[in-house]
Design a binder for these strands. Sequence first.
DNA 1: CGGTTTCCCATAATCTCCCATGGACACCCA
DNA 2: TGGGTGTCCATGGGAGATTATGGGAAACCG
Lengths: 162, 162
Amino acid sequence: MTQFKGTHTVRRDGKGRVSIPAAFRAVLKGDHPVAPGPNGAVVLRPSHKYACVEGWHPAAFEAQGSQIQQLPRFSDEEDDLALALYSDAVDAEPDKEGRIVLPRELADHAGLDEEVTFVGAGSHFQIWEPAAAQRRVAEARERARVLRMTLPPAALAAGGGK
Amino acid sequence: MTQFKGTHTVRRDGKGRVSIPAAFRAVLKGDHPVAPGPNGAVVLRPSHKYACVEGWHPAAFEAQGSQIQQLPRFSDEEDDLALALYSDAVDAEPDKEGRIVLPRELADHAGLDEEVTFVGAGSHFQIWEPAAAQRRVAEARERARVLRMTLPPAALAAGGGK
DNA sequence: CGGTTTCCCATAATCTCCCATGGACACCCA
DNA sequence: TGGGTGTCCATGGGAGATTATGGGAAACCG
């Protein structure tokens, strides 16, 4: 599946709507078992690690969930993960213009204001308050830099090495 | 996969477009799982080491991303790498003439002006401000020369990290 | 009913597609 | 060999399509 790439900042209008950046819409439109709308569908959920909202292609979200079943049945891990993943997730259908309304709980969780920043993260995207997005990306960059030094070379060899 | 070789300098027109050198276009066209356009596709991202833009064949870029899938789900490492890799990368589709538009953030990162220089780097290519490209290539040559004289062969084979 | 949500239309700025041009180079053939 | 000629490449620009955004009106719902 195509991946979410790039960073885009958009405005929330008076009704709480935000345009999903066109590049992300294109990803959401692809690979649908049953085509939902003209602009795909998206699963939104509050990140349980960060003050942001995650957006998933429905198929990718389901795939993610199915991995839980590899955990021991009735284990605490399964229970916790299942709730964490599903309890606060919502389906959203973009309107004809490609906009969605961010539910208030999600917007609050991410501390969203007038402007929101969409950040691509490959398998999914994240919605942040712009300044928080900048901080988080800077942090991730720095930590990835350190991480790259410790990863097995095999993982890095794919691109031809650095 | 064919490799990016050689150096080409081209002009940016008023709309911010640049012709991808024909030699590089040919590399980008090859090996596509799902053929995107008549001129292939390319993933652009700011180099995290230099003031230049990197251009990758989508397949090579995804191979880089595959290292993420080897990390534990929900781990900090996964999150950090995903953002570092994807948050500032963009897909670019060359037009029928083989040109792409360089997004402003990327052009700024590389300090690009009227003229830009494409430098082949095997697995990917780099886009530089022409003078900076010259300096960087000269530096690389010099350092390679010195390293070759002072490092034992085993160290060279290992990748010469530092 | 009143407030909220959903659909639809409008618009300015931007981006893409498409056509055109001139130069560089390779090739062909007398 | 030298001139002609065709092809590919880099570049330029106009017009139409997209994008992000705004707002009005209809539908919905307790």
